[in-house]
Design a protein around this nucleic acid. Structure first.
Lengths: 131, 131
DNA sequence: ATTATAGTTGAACAACTGTTCAACTGTCAA
DNA sequence: TTGACAGTTGAACAGTTGTTCAACTATAAT
């Protein structure tokens, strides 16, 4: 069976359909009105990176715990029932996002919240989750 | 070279080390004091699921846009310069989390924020990101 | 009735992420 | 100086996630 394929710019019909090259029923005014209000790329990624950071149960537990008390890695591992390695990896992530700070005392490394803004964000989310 | 491996409960030394079976230098009092304050599993996952949901730049853009105006899928796709398919998939995610609601009008499906709590959470995060 | 547009869907794919594993560094005590 | 513990690290692995692709349904217009 011979088949005939017509393309535009190397794209098949399907691909042309999937891209928004054939839309009639959209209100361009609305789109153009909203467009300038959209966040710029930098802000957008800062926002989503922040939420991604909070979007892990282990990291939430760590932040939650450190809100109560500064603790060393071993204590946190015991509290969360995880290996020190796993905890250490996550603390590194939180540290590089400046959410926690580390301080070495003797053989131990004690972690604490960098600032208490985290509490506010958590409380806000709690409110939302509570419906 | 003959090697001697001694195990406990089928675990090697390495594994015993990695698990917290040999910790001396932790303050058990601290751990026991904090433990009852930790969130229960359900709340923990509700929180992290909520943050996960917000932790994607496409979804943030969708919510941000819908805060300005209700819009149909095609308009959102045009605004974000994405395929309708990709947008539809993400809207489905947001809808099943009850963050947006859909309403079919003619050939179009219009999406709007379910409640304006989202704005509060976004503003809170903006504040944090702004340092 | 036929055709075109709007949107949805599931499978496939690639990219990302969290934990484990094993080996390592640094500090204290004997 | 040796041994034990505290913590870190990078590679590997498995599980998850977002987009694409292709096919589908539904509505409107001719």
């Amino acid at each position: 069976m011979p088949s005939l394929t017509i393309c535009y710019n190397g794209l098949t019909f399907e691909q042309l359909f999937n891209y928004n090259l054939n839309m009639e029923n959209v209100d361009l005014d609305t789109v153009n009105k909203v467009k300038p209000k959209m966040p710029d790329t930098t802000l957008l990624y800062e926002l989503s990176d922040f939420f991604k950071l909070m979007g892990d149960s282990t990291r939430i537990q760590l932040l939650w715990a450190l809100e109560e008390n500064e603790m060393c890695v071993g204590e946190l591992a015991l509290l969360l029932n995880m290996t020190k390695s796993a905890v250490s990896h996550q603390l590194k992530t939180l540290r590089s996002a400046k959410l926690v700070k580390a301080q070495k005392r003797g053989k131990n490394v004690f972690y604490a919240l960098s600032d208490h803004h985290v509490r506010t964000v958590l409380e806000m989310a709690l409110e939302h989750v509570a419906e």
